[in-house]
Write a protein that binds this DNA or RNA. Structure first.
Length: 431
RNA sequence: GUGCCUGUAGCUCAGUUGGUUAGAGCGUCGGGUUGUGGUCCCGAAGGCCGUGAGUUCAAGUCUCAUCAGGCACCCCA
């Protein structure tokens, strides 16, 4: 019996090629977040169970976390999301932080679930949060930031759609407008969340099961369907347009100068802690039929740590869904290896060539030396296989003349150059 | 946790209504002479057909179980 070479189910190995893509994604995420004034932070990958219990949503904690009892008999969890951690950190230094506080992080998160397209057991997630802003300008900023990231990856607004809704407005609809019981409201909320995945008949069937007879008699299904069919805020019944929540949504939409944002009454978001506006971005391609990223306002989470609550808006954006998006729209860049030059040695001259190589490294070039003393053809083959473009050959002749044979693998060119010329050519090409 | 689909070489797959020693392409390794790769030519290695049972004269092919993977649901990035 031999050991399996496969990575753990739902988790990934990152070979250099994969890691290069990840580095590229993180770089874009960081650049855009920092261009909006967000600062990077991090937290432990293990957290006490309690910080998820209160508000995350029970199924995630009960059934989808990696959790265990540590040697000190503490119940701990490998973080399934970042929001409770950052809330904890902010609560801990609530008095001394400067607001608005803008934070971002790219944690690796784990959830115990069956892997499928766009959903693994592990992913890297960009988390961006702004603390201490009560107005919808916080939401405006984060949605604009989201859009800026898409643009930075080369996407255009026909490739994705930003959908917004308001948790408070949903609650008003369910409790005041439709007058649902506590229990029915809960079930209907979960059902609305699934609406996009159900066909009309199934949706109606499940709606029927979620409601009390008195509610059905009260025309709840008809009223609800009419609301869910709303394509814009102006389609909502007049009774709802007077609420503050409605006004916030309206304000938000009028402040966003994007042509791919729209109100969608079925956007719910899974986490229980959302308290205001929520938003999600969807790939317009049918092949990626699930939410790419999402977020919203959660004004109550910091307060759970025993301090005065702080208004917060944040979002999470997973790398798996992003890569699917980039692939789908042919936005993956050609990424070059980090190594600039492959050094082939003609003969056993490593010791003599060392100074020459060091001199090149001092010029800021990345050099990989072939240490095998194989035939030159085999050495060049290695460079080609690694995807490198430049090869220099160093042998007795080159050491004497202080020149290199610089080979460009792409076009088979071979130049005899000195150190300065070599540096110029390679640097010019790779930067 | 539930459902559906799929397991044949490192990878992608072909294997006729069950019928002798299991196939291709790519990849790998070696060769085509001495300091020059990608093309081309020649050659080689590499499979208990996921695993276990059953049906049959005969199983890669049929049945069941089991494991693994994919997709969908649940939930969510």
């Amino acid at each position: 019996m031999s050991l399996s070479t496969k990575p753990y189910k739902g988790a990934r190995d990152f070979y250099p090629e994969d890691k290069r893509l990840q580095k590229f994604i993180f770089k874009v995420w960081r650049q855009v977040a920092e261009s909006y004034g967000y600062e990077e932070y991090d937290a432990p990958i293990i957290e006490p169970l309690e910080i998820y219990l209160a508000k995350t949503g029970s199924e995630i904690v009960d059934e989808q976390t990696y959790n265990f009892i540590d040697r000190g008999k503490r119940q701990v969890v490998i973080r399934p999301e970042m929001t409770p951690s950052v809330s904890r950190m902010v609560a801990a230094k609530r008095q001394e932080l400067a607001y608005p506080l803008r934070l971002y992080s790219i944690p690796n998160l784990w959830r115990y679930e069956r892997p499928q397209r766009g959903r693994l057991r592990e992913h890297w997630q960009l988390n961006v949060d702004i603390f201490g802003v009560k107005s919808i300008y916080a939401e405006v900023e984060l949605i604009n930031l989201t859009d800026a990231i898409f643009k930075a990856f080369g996407a255009n607004s026909t490739m994705y759609e930003i959908k917004v809704n308001h948790r408070g407005l949903i609650n008003e609809i369910l409790k005041n407008y439709l007058q649902l019981s506590q229990n029915s409201a809960y079930n209907v909320a979960k059902l609305i969340d699934r609406k996009a995945k159900l066909d009309k008949a199934d949706f109606l069937d499940q709606l029927d099961q979620s409601l009390l007879d008195s509610e059905k008699a009260n025309k709840v299904p008809e009223k609800l369907l009419s609301i869910l069919d709303s394509k814009s805020l102006s389609d909502l019944p007049p009774a709802l347009t007077k609420s503050d929540n409605f006004k916030q949504l309206k304000d938000l939409l009028s402040n966003l100068e994007l042509d791919n944002v729209k109100y969608d009454p079925s956007i719910m978001r899974g986490f229980d802690y959302y308290s205001g506006i929520v938003f999600e971005v969807f790939d317009k391609s049918e092949n990626n039929n699930r939410s790419m990223m999402g977020g919203g306002r959660y004004d109550g989470l910091v307060g759970l740590f025993g301090v005065e609550p702080i208004s917060t808006v944040g979002f999470g954006w997973g790398d798996v869904t992003l890569v699917n998006f980039l692939k789908e729209h042919a936005l993956l860049p050609q990424l070059k290896p980090e190594t600039d030059i492959y050094v082939c040695l003609a003969g056993d001259i490593y010791t003599k060539a060392k100074d020459m190589i060091s001199a090149l490294r001092r010029e800021g070039l990345n050099l990989a030396i072939d240490l095998t003393n194989r035939k030159l053809g085999d050495q060049i083959k290695s460079a080609d296989k690694k995807g490198l473009n430049y090869v220099i050959i160093i042998g007795e002749d080159e050491l004497k003349s202080a020149h290199f044979k610089l080979k460009t693998l792409k076009n088979k060119q071979e130049l005899n150059v000195n150190l300065k010329e070599l540096v110029n050519i390679v640097k010019h090409d790779s930067h």
